[in-house]
């Protein structure tokens, strides 16, 4: 497994706010990584640093060993689909697609046409007149048809309905299988994308909270539920990341679970349930107030 993105001590400070706070991580080439976290956690800043649109205050981020800042060698291999991409006023989607090969050497015009038809995008309407969902479709088509070695989607589907989102996921998977590349998907819809991800990077308050293969996360956590006393015995010595109580009944979400723990919990008559990636992240990021909240309090 080769590393394509590497951050070391990466920090971005705005006046009084540390958006990204000394993070270290690596991304493996040709994997799909979910960049997850709450609003204001630092996801977008991290993506801006990754694509050379912001300067790091401290530390470094490199793509294939090089800094992305004003570096055409890196940037021509990168496609960044933003939530709020702006286009020239009179542009129509067909103009965007016609201009794309100039930015993306791997652009596949036939694929773009196919996607536009599937997403029912009116390619001949002015972008100003498109609905929010149609505007998102333009971004999704550019992101997929560019086949950029590093493709970054930042909340790409505002306004898209469930059918169009599913089409996006299916196309993403199929095209990724046929043309492997490094994909970073930043989203709030964790449950929808959990199975597409190979790796999860969870950021909270500008720091990396989870940096793990998704498989390992799923195996790692479980919810044990039953009579309070039996639950407390079963979870003794384990990291309880969440606990809910209803009378004498307790449900505890536990990290660092092993087969032995599961077996003895079941033997003690406890319910052992799965924790979805979304639940796990809510548990891990829910307790701490964000920087912003601390400032305004």
């Amino acid at each position: 497994m080769t590393t394509i993105v590497e951050a070391r001590g990466l920090t971005k400070r705005y006046r009084g706010v540390t958006a990204v706070d000394g993070v270290d991580f690596q991304l493996a080439r040709n994997t799909i990584t979910g960049l997850l976290g709450r609003n204001g956690a630092g996801k977008t800043t991290l993506m801006h640093l990754l694509t050379g649109q912001e300067f790091a205050t401290n530390g470094s981020i490199t793509i294939a060993g090089e800094s992305p800042v004003e570096n055409p060698r890196v940037l021509q291999h990168t496609c960044f689909i933003k939530e709020s991409q702006r286009y020239p006023d009179d542009f129509k989607p067909k103009h965007v697609f016609a201009a794309a090969p100039g930015f993306f050497p791997n652009w596949d015009a036939d694929f773009a046409r196919e996607l536009a038809a599937e997403l029912r995008l009116p390619v001949d309407r002015r972008i100003k007149k498109l609905s929010r969902g149609q505007l998102s479709s333009v971004g999704i088509i550019v992101g997929l048809a560019s086949r950029a070695p590093i493709t970054i989607f930042d909340e790409p589907y505002l306004g898209l309905d469930a059918v169009a989102r599913q089409a996006f996921y299916d196309r993403l998977l199929a095209d990724y299988a046929a043309h492997p590349r490094t994909i970073i998907l930043s989203t709030h819809l964790i449950d929808e994308v959990a199975d597409l991800l190979e790796h999860a990077l969870v950021i909270d308050n500008g720091r990396i909270l989870i940096d793990s293969p998704v498989d390992a996360l799923r195996a790692h956590a479980a919810t044990l539920a039953g009579p309070a006393e039996a639950v407390e015995t079963a979870v003794a010595g384990l990291e309880v990341i969440h606990r809910e109580r209803l009378g004498g009944f307790v449900s505890a979400t536990v990290a660092g679970i092993t087969d032995d723990v599961t077996r003895s919990a079941r033997a003690a008559g406890l319910e052992v349930g799965p924790v979805s990636l979304q639940q796990l992240i809510i548990r891990q990021t829910g307790g701490t107030p964000t920087e912003h909240e601390e400032v305004t309090r």
Partner: peptide
């Protein structure tokens, strides 16, 4: 593995594993 991945809507690396 790619057929498994597409059918179950999972990452191809997961299917391969």
């Amino acid at each position: 593995t790619n057929e498994f991945a597409a059918f179950h809507r999972i990452n191809p690396a997961t299917a391969l594993k």
